[in-house]
Amino acid sequence: MTSLEVNGRTVQVDADPATPLLYVLRNDLGLNAAKFGCGLGQCGACTVMAGGEAIYSCLVPISALEGRPIVTVEGLGTQEHPGPMQEAFMEAQAAQCGYCIPGMMMRAQALLEKKPGASGEEVREALEPNLCRCGTHMRILRAVARAQELMKGGR
């Protein structure tokens, strides 16, 4: 049994401690947002936050995550009450297929929590680990900029 804190809830997980977090999120906890893209740390589709840092959940075993609060897109809000990052992505219509989007949101969230005033250039740099095949990049950048405003309480 491994004890994890996911989106503010403590859960006991019965899985091999070497299991990467991604599989536990998707299979044991039934969460959809984090996606399998490569399992290699090359695409960022699986990005979530652990202890305030963006991590590739496909690579980090749950045994490294006890005591480090994990946040996924599900933890940012709901369809009815979206958090600022989610609201911004909806506003900017920043998705085509959307498969890469949760990873983008979590990496952006980790950046903005550390650096609320990150410049456009810094956002681009920070998102480098995440791939988008649909070419939604321009909208993702707009959405992150919008999230910055919303987080500052702007409208």
């Binding site: 740390g41 202890g51 840092e53 690579l59």
Partner: peptide, 24 residues
Amino acid sequence: GITPREDSAQPWMPAFRGSFTDED
């Protein structure tokens, strides 16, 4: 990690920064 320049096709090792605590 060991990440090649974006436009060159080479092997890759992912960056684990943020993944582990110092102790781990």
